[in-house]
Write a protein that binds this DNA or RNA. Structure first.
Length: 419
DNA sequence: TCTGGGGTCCTAGGACCC
DNA sequence: TCTGGGGTCCTAGGACCC
């Protein structure tokens, strides 16, 4: 059996962990730049707040209902996520970390306990050792486990653990689930399925899989097989090598000048290059992109991207910035109020196995040492302690985060004090 | 005034190879 | 009159996920 362990309202639960006074209060967490609501406690859900609601539209409502609002604090969420995953890995031999707040776990058959008992044990242990509430869904495939988890979360009779096995009642349960709730079935596929008379998870399970493949492709055919209890999406314990690294942000307010865009793009490149080095990778290509607001139809709009092929694969910040600046200048059009810029690194390979350029000198040892020194200093003193001048000093474009909680667990200066 | 960020996989079509 | 067959690689766009 597979279990999906899913942290309940993860970001909101993280914020509550160090503010237990908020435990029965409505809490929401905002996306970067304090843009949208991306996490809600159950109380906030009950107030009718929706995932993706723009903050500025709900500000008054939130104040009126005494909702506690947080900017996102990824240092905190990342650290608590690691703790949850560590507990799972101590408890079970096979764990796939699926996202920041979810993991698939294989439940061993010969444990002498039912799978629901094992699920309850997992839930109890995470609660006790980390303090984050989780739901556990169990099934013979990952897709069924995901589905079971939505039931575990919604229906309080199950104490947060639900098993969707092949018992006779399964059909009733599947027939009560809308097809768009199935993992892998999104908005577009739902439209196509609905127009062909398929509305529920049961309808999909009973469709002809060849026919589904013709209409919706291979991925959806796999989903059908999985709904029938036939594993078609394997557990991936060791994550495959990353294929791209992205760094992008919305600006605090629209930016028109090239100079400010250069600072932003330099900063994003610095962040991404550091990520590359941390994982022992190098990139062969750098993409730069630039866009005005998607939501303003009353002003001129522009969105575009350019790619540079680097002279040789690298993880050094300066050649990446050099290439990025060149592409940005070519991409930039004067007179637009840009609201977002970003970069993407692709063509990744392991630094140790990189393909050298026959006609260029290999990257020097000095260069590597410089990067290692920069990373070390920034690890110790914070991301921006030492940075390239091209990424700017005043950074008026930098994102808004007006309601951020302390980095309780990852910064000595911000440790909570117990009296 | 104000609407996030970071990923993956699949498919079709074009370019190219022998 | 008539113009093969079997491949690979790359890219862009679509769809999906959290």
């Amino acid at each position: 059996m597979y279990a999906l362990v899913d942290c309940n309202n993860f970001y909101a639960s993280c914020e509550r962990l160090f503010r237990p006074g908020l435990n029965l209060r409505p809490v929401v967490v905002l996306s970067n730049n304090d843009g949208c609501i991306i996490a809600r406690s159950n109380e906030a859900k009950q107030l009718g707040l929706v995932m993706g609601d723009p903050y500025f539209k709900k500000k008054a409502f939130l104040r009126q209902h005494g909702v506690e609002v947080f900017s996102s604090n990824y240092a905190l969420y990342g650290d608590l996520s690691n703790r949850v995953m560590t507990v799972l890995q101590q408890l079970e031999p096979e764990v796939e970390i699926y996202s920041i707040d979810e993991a698939f776990v294989r439940l061993p058959a010969q444990s002498g306990r039912s799978s629901v008992e094992q699920g309850l044990e997992i839930k109890k242990r995470v609660d006790r050792w980390v303090g984050i509430p989780v739901s556990v869904g169990i099934g013979t495939t990952k897709t069924l486990a995901k589905l079971a988890a939505t039931i575990a979360k919604k229906d309080e009779r199950h104490n947060g653990v639900f098993c969707l096995d092949d018992s006779p009642g399964q059909e009733n349960i599947l027939s009560a689930i809308q097809v768009n709730k199935v993992w892998g079935v999104g908005k577009r596929s739902t439209q196509k399925l609905n127009s062909r008379g398929i509305y529920t998870a049961l309808d999909l399970q009973q469709s002809d899989n060849r026919w589904i493949r013709k209409i919706l492709g291979l991925s959806c055919e796999r989903t059908v097989m999985e709904l029938r209890g036939q594993p078609s999406i394997p557990l991936e314990e060791t994550p495959p090598c990353r294929k791209s690294v992205v760094s992008s942000r919305s600006f605090r307010k629209p930016v028109r000048e090239l100079a400010a865009l250069k600072e932003a793009v330099s900063s994003y490149i610095s962040i991404a290059a550091n990520k590359l080095r941390k994982q022992g990778l190098v990139a062969a290509n750098l993409h730069v992109f630039l866009a005005t607001s998607r939501f303003r139809t009353d002003i001129p709009r522009f969105s575009g991207s350019r790619m540079a092929v680097l002279p040789q694969p690298t993880a050094s910040t300066s050649p990446l910035i050099k290439a990025g600046m060149r592409e940005l200048i070519l991409l930039y059009r004067e007179g637009y109020p840009y609201n977002k810029a970003g970069i993407m690194l692709t063509g990744l390979s392991r630094a140790a196995l990189r393909q050298q350029n026959l006609f260029l000198p290999a990257e020097s040892k000095r260069d590597r040492q410089l990067m290692a020194a920069v990373d070390q200093i920034n690890e110790r003193w914070g991301r921006d302690a030492l940075r390239y001048a091209s990424s700017g000093l005043r950074r008026e474009w930098s994102m808004k985060q007006s309601r951020k909680s302390p980095a309780y667990t990852t910064s000595w200066a911000e440790l909570p004090i117990v009296r």
